[in-house]
Nucleic acid binder design. Sequence first.
DNA 1: TCAACTTATATGACACGTCATTGAATGACA
DNA 2: TGTCATTCAATGACGTGTCATATAAGTTGA
Lengths: 125, 125
Amino acid sequence: MATPQDRQLVEQWRSIQSTYFRTAGAIDRALESRFSIGLTEFEILDLVAESADAACRMKQLGERTPMTQSAMSKVVDRLEKAGLISRHSCEDDRRSLFLELTDAGRALHGEAAVEHRALLKENLA
Amino acid sequence: MATPQDRQLVEQWRSIQSTYFRTAGAIDRALESRFSIGLTEFEILDLVAESADAACRMKQLGERTPMTQSAMSKVVDRLEKAGLISRHSCEDDRRSLFLELTDAGRALHGEAAVEHRALLKENLA
DNA sequence: TCAACTTATATGACACGTCATTGAATGACA
DNA sequence: TGTCATTCAATGACGTGTCATATAAGTTGA
């Protein structure tokens, strides 16, 4: 029933879980305490910062993250309320929105990214 | 600012996240639909099934999972309500509890474990 | 051009996890 | 033994994620 291969799979899985939780937790706590945003919020900022080219992005961003569409929408709500991001409706397709960092958002992202990368390095070594 | 090493770290991180969410999601949906328990519940069942030797385990189980003590307590609540596990108070230290699978719990764990291992194999290849 | 269908985002109800706190039992030591 | 600190587990308030659905805009084809 519990073959050696099974055990090895389970070990591998626990190791992934452990890395994931340790890393995500460390980043989340650091960003929360220094910048008052969570990991999820940062990840959206990071994606928006990356895709600097114009596009109707709300949708496309969704394809680059494991987040649900509905989760995305709520994260963007929070970021907008925090004044870090703005939604602009798309001329070609008024159902779509594209996102843009505000100046504050860009500044915060810059600093937070340093922290983020540092913690990744520390935890994924 | 964005060194190649940074990009590589971020890529590695996204890959871990993706594997984690894909795998956890697949297992969770499968267990939910076939056995009406979630991944979290299964993981506790699995830990209890593993540590068949007697001990005041609630605490010790906590050390083997990234879950919070409070989360553990609530998961065990659900498992107990579902009749899959039972809490027994510990003679030596009446603050502690140890856990035991019920017959139903053992049976369900046996079947669910097969599914669990299969999905790990599929997703962690 | 008007239905019927599809697509993009928002929203509400709900489930689950975390943090902070509580209650109870234990330990340490004057 | 009496006090104070510590440890184990449970609980309530709260935040955030998911699913199902709503709303609005676009598409298709007779």
